[in-house]
């Protein structure tokens, strides 16, 4: 059995390594699929942001591209009315819990949400869902960066960087349901936690929740 398979994404023939996940195959071939939580190295994908829906022939419902292994002869469409509907709702749901003042955001013009909006023609404003308007305390205790949870989309990129790249284990997800947040042990400010301020988490953040303080970055 060959290590490579041939498949079709959006009418294009694509070669890929057997067992690879569809999302990465598509991205490697410059075919865009929205995503926030996917981490290539993660063995069992988190599959939590629910934005990478695609249609696969033979499946009666859209499926997440990050969890599907490519197969010989697989036929994939990255867009359909059902996919677009789910992506739109998922995206609007995330925005309803996201501080949407882009102009004040350090990640403005360098933000994954903005990329998704642009690529999929979605609006960066509250449309069907009222903003949840939750209060979060800004953690600017580290010397060079800060953490504004009002922008956090709970993608898990920072906790992965902290755990597996920096190998520190200072931050993690706590609470349940709508109260789920990324935080430190006992909700301590980062500077008072075991955080080493290596800043790998800041580099990993796709939306400007973890960001470099201006004067340091200038």
């Amino acid at each position: 059995m060959s290590d490579y398979i041939t498949m079709i994404i959006d009418d294009r023939e694509v070669k890929a390594r057997r067992g690879e996940k569809l999302l990465w195959v598509a991205l490697d071939n410059d075919i865009y699929i929205p995503h926030l939580c996917a981490i290539k190295e993660e063995k069992r994908p988190n599959a939590s942001c629910r934005l990478c829906f695609v249609e696969i022939e033979g499946h009666n419902q859209p499926v997440t591209a990050c969890t599907r292994e490519v197969e010989e002869g697989m036929v994939v469409a990255t867009r359909s009315s059902r996919v677009d509907r789910l992506v739109k709702t998922g995206f609007e749901l995330l925005l309803s819990d996201h501080n949407l003042k882009c102009r004040e955001c350090p990640a403005n013009k360098n933000c994954s949400l903005q990329v998704i909006a642009k690529k999929r023609g979605l609006k960066l404003k509250h449309h069907r869902f009222n903003p949840l308007k939750r209060e979060f305390k800004l953690d600017d205790s580290p010397a060079e960066f800060a953490f504004d949870r009002s922008r956090c989309v709970l993608c898990g990129q920072c906790t992965w960087a902290d755990r597996f790249e920096a190998e520190v284990g200072a931050i993690g997800f706590t609470n349940r349901g709508i109260d789920r947040v990324v935080t430190t042990f006992n909700d301590l400010p980062l500077a008072d936690s075991i955080c080493t301020e290596c800043k790998l988490c800041v580099d990993a953040c796709p939306v400007g929740a973890l960001y470099y303080k201006k004067d340091q970055n200038a």
Binding site: S48, R50, L51, L93, F129, N130, N175, R176, G177
Partner: peptide, 21 residues
């Protein structure tokens, strides 16, 4: 269900919250 949602995925965490509202 909103109360018992684990909060991992977008649709359940935020979707059930908005449905409840």
């Amino acid at each position: 269900t909103q109360n018992e949602s684990c909060g991992k995925c977008t649709f359940c965490r935020l979707g059930t919250k908005h449905m409840l509202d």
